[in-house]
Amino acid sequence: MPEPWQPGPLLEVLLRRGVRFVLIGGFAAIAYGSPFPTEDVDITPEASTANLKRLSDALHELKAKIRTEGVDDGLPFDPDAASLAAARMWNLTTCYGDLDISMAPSGTTGYADLIKDSVDHAAFGLLIPTASLADIIRSKQAANRPKDQRVLPVLRELLASRHDQHTDDD
């Protein structure tokens, strides 16, 4: 049976383990005011061997398994830095709910690209490095999935509103 989604404890483990990552996807969009619910945490980790080792340690602590349709508890997963680096995307389930790891989200070149304009958002008593709203939009546009196309007009409106607020403050 899938675990209940608890993004705070999941993110706390990643941060406590020293994993360098950027929050992306729907949960990141919520930090900017998106009204669309999500049921997973999406991250892009920095791809150095040392960081992927820290991510591996965090995934072991989180009891991560590979999430696949038709298998409620997930498939066994014993990640190490090399196996994490070998795939572009990991869809996992953890003791705190679902976690998706994307090494280079659509429309981006990965961590170095996303960290440049990221913002530390406060949530769950943590400071979470979060992709900029413009980068979230860029990635969702490039992915061009139906679920992304549905949310893009609202995300663009949020971005325009933020831009207008900054212009008014000047």
Rank of each mutant, 00 (worst) to 15 (best):
V119A: 07
F36K: 14
L62D: 03
A122D: 11
L159D: 14
T44G: 02
M89V: 14
P7I: 03
A28G: 12
D100S: 04
G74K: 11
D42Q: 09
D120T: 12
K147R: 13
E3G: 08
R156L: 05
S132T: 11
A64I: 03
P153V: 10
Y96E: 04
A64K: 06
L158C: 06
T49A: 08
D148F: 10
V41A: 07
R20F: 00
V19W: 11
K53N: 13
P76L: 02
W5A: 03
A142Y: 15
D100T: 00
T108H: 06
R20S: 11
S139Q: 09
G110R: 15
A47V: 10
A85Q: 08
P9S: 07
T44D: 05
H121M: 12
L84W: 00
S132P: 09
L10P: 05
L15D: 06
I101D: 06
K116T: 13
S139G: 12
G125V: 01
E46P: 01
E61P: 02
T130H: 06
V154N: 09
V13W: 00
E157R: 15
I30G: 08
P4G: 00
L92A: 01
V19C: 14
E61W: 04
A112G: 12
G97R: 06
H60C: 07
A131D: 04
A134R: 13
L23Q: 02
L133T: 11
I30R: 15
E157C: 10
L152V: 12
V13I: 03
F124W: 10
T94G: 05
Q6V: 06
I137S: 05
S118Y: 00
I137C: 06
L159T: 13
L62Q: 01
G74C: 12
H60M: 10
S139P: 04
D100L: 00
A64H: 03
V154R: 13
G25T: 08
G18A: 07
M89R: 15
I43G: 07
A28K: 07
T49G: 01
D164A: 14
F77S: 14
L15G: 05
L126Y: 01
R88A: 15
T167S: 08
A28P: 05
L62E: 06
E61F: 04
Q6A: 15
S139K: 08
S118P: 01
L52P: 02
Q165N: 10
D120H: 13
S34G: 00
R156H: 04
L126S: 01
A112N: 11
A86Q: 11
M1P: 07
T68A: 09
Y96W: 08
A81P: 10
D42E: 14
A28Y: 02
G8H: 11
F21I: 12
S161V: 02
D168L: 14
P45C: 01
L99G: 03
T130D: 05
A142Q: 15
N51F: 00
T94L: 12
T108F: 02
A29L: 10
G74L: 10
D73L: 14
T130E: 05
T109Y: 11
R20Y: 01
P129N: 08
A160N: 14
G33L: 05
I128H: 03
C95Q: 15
T94A: 03
L23R: 07
A87G: 01
E69T: 13
W90T: 11
P146G: 13
I137E: 13
D117V: 03
S161G: 11
G125F: 04
W90S: 08
S102K: 03
V22S: 08
P7D: 02
L59Q: 07
